[in-house]
């Protein structure tokens, strides 16, 4: 059994210790916003924050999450209360197929937490672990720069995002 904090809520799971966090979040806790893309930490579609740091969760065994705090895209913001990055992503039409965007936004949010005013090359370095097969990179970069410029970034504190939606279990 592993206990951890998911979007501000204390949770526990009996998934086997080697189960990657991604699948625990997606299939046990039914938060489907984080995606499976490669399974080897190469594409970043599964990016979540672990104690505030962007992590590839498709290769992170759940046992390593014991006692830690996990934030997913659902914990970052909701359609009704979007994070500044999500709002700009929406306004600027960043996503195409959209499948990588949760991971992109989680990486961008972690970057802005530690570096509120990144240069273009700092953005490249922070974001190059996230593949966008549709090639939305110019828009992703512009959106991050605009959010930084507008100083809209909310301080991401887990206490403030305790309303992470747990949709009713469809099963």
């Amino acid at each position: 059994m592993t206990k951890f904090n998911l979007n501000g809520r204390a949770v526990e799971t009996i998934d086997s210790d080697d189960t990657p966090l991604l699948w625990v979040v997606r299939d046990t806790f039914k938060l489907k916003g984080s995606k499976f893309g490669c399974g080897i930490g190469q594409c970043g579609a599964c990016t979540m924050h672990l104690d505030g740091i962007a992590k590839r969760t498709c290769i992170l065994p759940i046992i390593a999450v014991e006692g830690k705090s996990v934030t997913t895209i659902e914990g970052l913001g909701t359609p009704e209360n979007m994070h500044a990055l999500q709002a700009v992503w929406t306004e600027q039409g960043v996503p195409q197929c959209g499948y990588c965007q949760s991971g992109q936004i989680m990486s961008a949010a972690a970057l802005l937490e530690t570096n509120p005013d990144p240069s273009k090359s700092e953005i490249d370095q922070a974001m190059k672990g996230n593949i966008c097969r549709c090639g939305c990179y110019p828009r992703i970069k512009k959106a991050i720069l605009d959010v930084a410029a507008n100083r809209k970034v909310k301080k991401l504190q887990l206490s403030e995002v305790a309303t992470g939606p747990f949709p009713e279990d469809v099963s």
């Binding site: 938060l31 489907k32 916003g33 995606k35 659902e74 359609p79 929406t90 996503p95 959209g98």
Partner: peptide, 20 residues
């Protein structure tokens, strides 16, 4: 702006892999 932008920026757009 695209109408599917918000769902795809908030993790709420649904793909086949999300179905249960």
């Amino acid at each position: 702006a695209r109408i599917d932008g918000q769902a795809k920026s908030t993790g709420t757009a649904e793909y086949g892999i999300d179905i249960e």
